[in-house]
Design a protein around this nucleic acid. Structure first.
Length: 157
DNA sequence: GCCAACGTTGGC
DNA sequence: GCCAACGTTGGC
């Protein structure tokens, strides 16, 4: 199975690229959407991730990470103290899964959602679609590479 | 803070 | 199984 590419959204107030840089590796907890969960199941070690900051100003891709541990049950689903608790989940029926992710790098600048929308090359990316709330999305390698390059260049006005 | 878009829930 | 009501996401 060849390497795949993903975009993963997080609110930086909750978990940011700086948090991952400090921790080096971390479990990606709290995914509570079936479509996103199914993508988590497909992830392989070494898959690369666009680390996307949402609900912040500006929203955009803040850096890169990679999958460093395959999917396993997300124990926060049955932790009553967790914000992500789901009464239907239990150790016998975990429902929700998580992978561990490893820091690769923080971009010298955020590649903003606005820039992604403006780039003809990136037309068709899921993240720029109106109403797209999916927190984990597959990404084309060409788009992934292009965004990594954008991060190294100044914003085109 | 607003609200469009979408997912989930639950009555029927 | 339909679909209205409700809750959440996340850009703006």
């Amino acid at each position: 199975m060849s390497k795949r590419y993903w975009l993963m959204k997080t609110e930086p107030d909750v978990f940011s690229i700086d948090d991952l840089k400090r921790l080096k590796r971390a479990p990606w907890e709290g995914v509570r959407n079936y479509q996103a969960r199914n993508f988590i199941r497909e992830m392989e070690i070494g898959d690369e991730i666009l680390f996307y900051h949402s609900s912040t100003e500006p929203p955009g891709v803040a850096g890169l990470a990679k999958v460093c541990r395959k999917a396993r049950p997300d124990p926060t689903a049955w932790d009553p103290k967790s914000d992500y608790v789901d009464p239907k989940a239990s150790p016998q029926n975990p429902i929700w899964m998580m992978v561990d992710v490893e820091f690769m790098r923080k971009f010298p600048r955020v590649v903003t959602l606005e820039e992604l929308k403006r780039s003809p090359f990136l037309a068709g990316m899921l993240v720029i679609r109106r109403g797209m709330r999916l927190s984990i999305q597959p990404v084309e390698k060409e788009h992934f590479d292009f965004i990594a390059k954008m991060a190294e260049k100044p914003v085109v006005a």
